[in-house]
């Protein structure tokens, strides 16, 4: 099967009901919102959503009834406040019950790092003494050399990591820059990687700057070219954060009926990413472009 696919096909073929799906690996940047919308359109069910912080994306997917469980450090709306759907799900089981496994950003990062290293846990000095340090993903451990007490974080192994990147080739070799979050560890920890990218570039572009390759193609099951695929979150060099979109979602999702209207307007009634960009309108899309390029100094790989 070729790796280069439409977003619809990639989600249909690579994401199954009941899977654990890691998204938001770069925290509030490069969030694969378009992939999340497609998960909602295809009515995936019983997913375990894994993240550090995926801004308001998880609130949307929880509201759409696709998730049975969340495993992460933070669910809400970063600029606007609490996640209304997250609250309704945890506080009163609406639209369905939601199990929560608490992490901090660093404990999730270490859980992925452990899986990426092929070891069952990593020791750390964080989380000790807190109430969620008692949960099943964490245990006290003693250093065999010094006798120090540390906290062990169990390896986190998502079935699939969905990552948005600036550019990739058709083999899935991906260049990423800007805020990286836990992107590389998420790719190495997961059973497979699904990429969305702003641009598909020739293989030669990847080879021209191998230090910028965070994800080698052999980890990648599918790659879909999805311009503005992180909207409303930013993609360095391509699109700014659309702050108003977050505040608007926060206001509309305050009650269930308002969220359903939002969901219909922006996701369910929309024909894929092209339809979504059409709803945003050319003016809004133009406003999201950076004022100008800000180029790094080129480096020589001369030998």
């Amino acid at each position: 099967m070729p790796k280069l696919r439409s977003l619809r096909a990639a989600i249909a073929q690579e994401v199954e009901d009941g899977m654990s799906v890691f998204m938001g690996a770069a925290l509030e940047s490069l969030i694969p919102f378009a992939a999340g919308y497609e998960i909602m359109r295809q009515h995936k069910r019983d997913l375990t959503l894994m993240t550090t912080i995926s801004d308001m994306q998880f609130d949307q997917i929880i509201g759409a009834g696709c998730a049975a469980r969340v495993c992460g450090a933070w669910v809400g709306n970063v600029a606007a406040g609490l996640g209304h759907n997250y609250r309704r799900a945890v506080e009163r089981g609406e639209p369905g019950p939601l199990a929560v496994e608490n992490h901090s950003n660093f404990s999730m990062a270490l859980g992925l790092k452990a899986a990426a290293m092929g070891v069952p846990y990593l020791p750390t000095r964080t989380l000790m003494g807190s109430d969620f340090g008692e949960e099943a993903s964490f245990a006290g451990v003693q250093c065999p050399f010094t006798g120090e007490n540390l906290l062990a974080v169990r390896a986190v192994k998502p079935d699939v990591a969905i990552l948005h990147v600036q550019r990739a080739d058709d083999e899935g070799n991906a260049h990423v820059w800007g805020n990286l979050g836990v992107t590389q560890d998420a790719a190495m920890a997961a059973g497979k990687v699904l990429l969305t990218c702003e641009e598909i570039v020739p293989h030669e572009v990847i080879l021209s700057d191998p230090n910028r390759t965070l994800i080698p193609g052999f980890l990648v099951a599918a790659v879909a070219c999805v311009p503005l695929g992180s909207h409303p979150s930013p993609t360095q060099g391509y699109n700014r954060r659309d702050d108003d979109f977050y505040f608007d979602y926060h206001a509309k999702s305050r009650d269930r009926a308002g969220f359903e209207e939002w969901l219909n307007h922006w996701v369910l009634e929309v024909e894929g990413q092209d339809g979504y960009i059409e709803r945003l309108g050319t003016e809004r899309v133009a406003r999201l472009k950076p004022d100008s390029d800000y180029m790094a100094a080129p480096v020589s790989y001369g030998y």
Partner: peptide
């Protein structure tokens, strides 16, 4: 994390994010 009891909270707050790590 939560206001009220953990199992059926009155308000579910967003969680730690990196706050615990910064403080630890």
């Amino acid at each position: 994390s939560v206001i009220g009891g953990y199992e059926r909270p009155k308000v579910r707050l967003p969680g730690s994010g990196g706050a615990n790590d910064i403080i630890s």
